[in-house]
Structures are given as structure tokens and as C-alpha cells.
Nucleic acid binder design. Structure first.
Length: 266
DNA sequence: AAGGCAGCCTGTAAGC
DNA sequence: TGCTTACAGGCTGCCT
């Protein structure tokens, strides 16, 4: 499922493929998933595509924005002119461009969607998000402050909280905690300064490396060019034993399945 | 106030 | 074998 590295990969691909193109028409629009108000502003040109946390922000020529959240199964696919495959499943919108190419948005579980917003509403949405983990503001000092604020919460739930740090999801949270040997059930207040420093560095290292690998392909997620490569580096997610051959435990934290190694993570 | 959890949705895997 | 059920997951909104 798309987390920061996957969303970043998709944003880069969208910029390469559809920036500067004009949306002439849209079909197969599922109004529950894609805001039908988009139909009223056509034709409209795509100026730029940006990411904030796990959000994809598509800037349009009429000063409005398409805000997309992929949740678990959202997906974009680009087709050159006359290359559209009609047997695609789960299409919730097909954007047709002035040059004959097209972009589909697919969504199996229809959890995410595309909204049309003006600048004011967009800023409101963005303001709910916490610090960008790959931005300059995510310093060790900042990380310490966040942990202090949530000292009674377990560390994994804190990493998943988008209003604190934006972009880390269930997979990368578990992986980062494994690589620094922290039990995901640990309260923030129980972490040593050394562990906090290691975790801070690991989050940055892992996300950057995963972007290099074009994200992870797990279950339904693929980026626009096909599969990512980071899934080959996952240590514990959805596995039975850790790289050191210890048996993994699976518990529920923050409402989500959480793998950890009781030997390596304390 | 802040934490917990149902609900959204549907494919896949496990269970009978 | 074929049906049923449980589970996966990010996030919102309600409940305590």
C-alpha cells in the first residue's frame, strides 16, 4: 500500500507523463470516488504535481487543485494515444488529454479518491499534516519534541500518526523499528536518547533508500512504470521470522497488524 | 482530552 | 469442492 516512497515515486512519474497536458474530457467517472465537479471545469491544464505526506496534489490552470489520496489500493496508469487497454478493472475515472493520451485512476477498495479544491481548502487539508520526514524541519530536536508530546503512546502508533509525521505507514513504521531494535509497544517515554537518535536516522535512511528503489510492491500497489523494488529489502513485514531466524510475533497496534521480533526488539 | 474502534470496500486466503 | 468467514489497510468520526 502506498506510503511516502510509493507516493513520491508516483508523483515523479506523473510529472514526467502528464504535466503540461490539458484534460479535455473524463469518462468512467465514479462520483463516489472522484469529485464530479471536475467535469464542470474542463478543459483544464495540469500545471504541476506535488506530494505532501501521502497526498498527491495536482495543480490546475484555473487555480484549483485535485487532491488525491490513494489509501490502500488507489492507482494511476498512463496510456499513450491509441494504446488504451479496455479490459482494465476498477477504473474510477479516465482522464483524456489533448494529445490523445489518457490517465486512469483505478481503485479496488474505493477508500481513497480525488477531490477538487481551491487554494484555501487545500491549505486547510495540508495544515492537518505533521512534519515531512525528508524535509529540513525533521530534525532530531523536532523528533524529540514530538515524542515528548506523546510520551504515553506507544512508539509505533506515534510513527503512524499523520498529524505528527506525514508519510510513514504501517510497513515502514514496523521496518524502521526492527532495524533499530525497538519493540513497537514501547512507550515514547521509555526510549533512550540513543535509541531516539538511531530511529530518527533510520526513518530518513529507509525512506530515501525506498524512493531510490521506487517503493515497495506489496499486494496491490504498483507504481506507474510497474513494480517497485524495496519489497526485496523488507525484514519483517508479513514474514514468519526475522533475518536472524527468530520467530516473529504479530500483534495489533493502532488498529493494524504489527510484526516484531521479541529477541531483536526490546 | 485523548485513546479506542467501527465503518468504509473488496480481493484473497483460510476454514468448514 | 464450494461456500462462508476473516482479514488486510489509512483515515474519519463517533464514543467513552
Amino acid at each position: 500500500m502506498p506510503e511516502l516512497p510509493e507516493v513520491e515515486t508516483i508523483v515523479r512519474q506523473l510529472n514526467k507523463k502528464v504535466r503540461g497536458k490539458t484534460i479535455k474530457s473524463i469518462n468512467n467517472l465514479d462520483s463516489k470516488v472522484v469529485d464530479p465537479k471536475i467535469l464542470r471545469i474542463l478543459p483544464v491544464k495540469i500545471i504541476n504535481i506535488k506530494r505532501r505526506g501521502k497526498l498527491i496534489i495536482i495543480e490546475l490552470s484555473n487555480n484549483q487543485f485535485l487532491l488525491t489520496h490513494l489509501r490502500m489500493t488507489g492507482h494511476f496508469q498512463y496510456f499513450l494515444k491509441n494504446n488504451f487497454l479496455n479490459d482494465q478493472k476498477f477504473v474510477v475515472a479516465k482522464f483524456n488529454f489533448d494529445d490523445g493520451s489518457s490517465l486512469t485512476h483505478n481503485s479496488i477498495r474505493k477508500f481513497g479518491g480525488i477531490k477538487l479544491l481551491d487554494k484555501e481548502k487545500l491549505d486547510l487539508e495540508i495544515s492537518k499534516l505533521g512534519v515531512e520526514p525528508l524535509g529540513v524541519a525533521f530534525t532530531l530536536k523536532k523528533f524529540n519534541e514530538l515524542l515528548l508530546k506523546k510520551s504515553k503512546s506507544n512508539i509505533k502508533t506515534i510513527l503512524l500518526n499523520q498529524s505528527l509525521i506525514a508519510g510513514i505507514g504501517n510497513i515502514y513504521a514496523q521496518e524502521a523499528l526492527y532495524f533499530v531494535g525497538i519493540n513497537p509497544q514501547k512507550k515514547a517515554s521509555e526510549l533512550s536518547l540513543l535509541k531516539i537518535k538511531q530511529l530518527h536516522a533510520e526513518i530518513i535512511r529507509m525512506l530515501k533508500f525506498a524512493i531510490q528503489k521506487k517503493g515497495s510492491t506489496v499486494n496491490n500497489y504498483t507504481n506507474m512504470g510497474g513494480a517497485g523494488g524495496y519489497q526485496n529489502y523488507l525484514a519483517i513485514y508479513n514474514k514468519k521470522e526475522c533475518p536472524k531466524k527468530h520467530k516473529l510475533e504479530k500483534i495489533n497496534l493502532g488498529g493494524r497488524g504489527t510484526y516484531f521480533c521479541p529477541v531483536c526488539q526490546r
